[in-house]
Design a protein around this nucleic acid. Structure first.
Lengths: 148, 148
DNA sequence: ATCCCTGCAAAGGCTTTGCATGCCA
DNA sequence: TGGCATGCAAAGCCTTTGCAGGGAT
């Protein structure tokens, strides 16, 4: 149990990449390093700008390709906020079920695990004649700091 | 109680437009007529293509402007599906709380009202120290026809 | 008669693609 | 060495904006 339990760090991500058969290259390492530094959701462009100041020059295309790759490996989550639909956050866990809670004021994103949406399935099934198999949920609110 | 209860029809939408102070123009009528014909979520482009065959020529800009207007009036819902983030469905109700259930197979969208997400708020608040104030939920599954 | 609304076309973002070169394994 | 990965630039979408003319009220 480390200080920030269950949050992926750059080494773990790089290892996952390698395990999945992808090559560990300098641009990919720079991208992974950068995205573990974000505390809130970031866009491809945020990442691009952040990287423009870093060691290796990373091309636009590489950023998009790497983001897609990380999402497909479950290492990165795509956020579907009300306004911007294309932002990303580091995945919280690859094994446990969780969702995101987003602060309306500062934009910080935290995961939460207490989700009993599946309890809704029977009622919804009955109401709609659907066989429900999945859900997408995001909560909004105010974080502790912003309330203060 | 009509056959398809609580679903907005084109006349109701047009009246709401008028009530909100917007002018009732031919392009707007054509757009409203077209979108009440869709059974599943549609994109701006779907609408545009559908309209290219209709009576008045409706410009791209007008379609986007009208969609935004209808969404802001609560007559149209923006859907945030996993893949495409920019599709629309006719609003189900302007007063009641509901969400969308989307068929993974045919894409049909139906609303459902049995949502007790708010019951989650206390547990999530305690877990995260957020003051939760809203949520976004979408369910996925198989509709009756697709199961058959 | 007002001035909101429209179409057109151009501009603007964001994302993807093609291709020759580079570099990890 | 082989072939995945990269950068660059161009192309591709999708959406918005500017503007002069048109139509609803």
């Amino acid at each position: 149990m480390t200080k920030t339990a269950a949050v992926l760090d750059s080494n773990t991500i790089i290892e996952s990449l390698r395990d999945a058969g992808y090559r560990v290259t300098a641009p990919r390492q720079a991208i992974v390093e950068a995205l573990t530094g974000f505390e809130r959701a970031f866009s491809a462009d945020d990442l691009l700008q952040h990287l423009s100041a870093s060691d290796p020059t990373v091309g636009r295309a590489t950023v998009f390709r790497t983001l897609d790759m990380l999402v497909s490996l479950g290492l990165l989550d795509r956020l579907h906020a009300a306004d911007g639909c294309h932002s990303y956050v580091l995945a919280h866990s690859q094994s446990r079920h969780y969702h995101h809670l987003i602060c309306n004021s500062c934009g910080v994103v935290v995961p939460f695990e207490s989700c009993n949406i599946e309890a809704l399935y029977p009622a919804v099934s009955e109401e709609t004649d659907f066989q429900v198999s999945g859900h997408m949920l995001e909560l909004f609110g105010l974080c502790g700091s912003c309330r203060a």
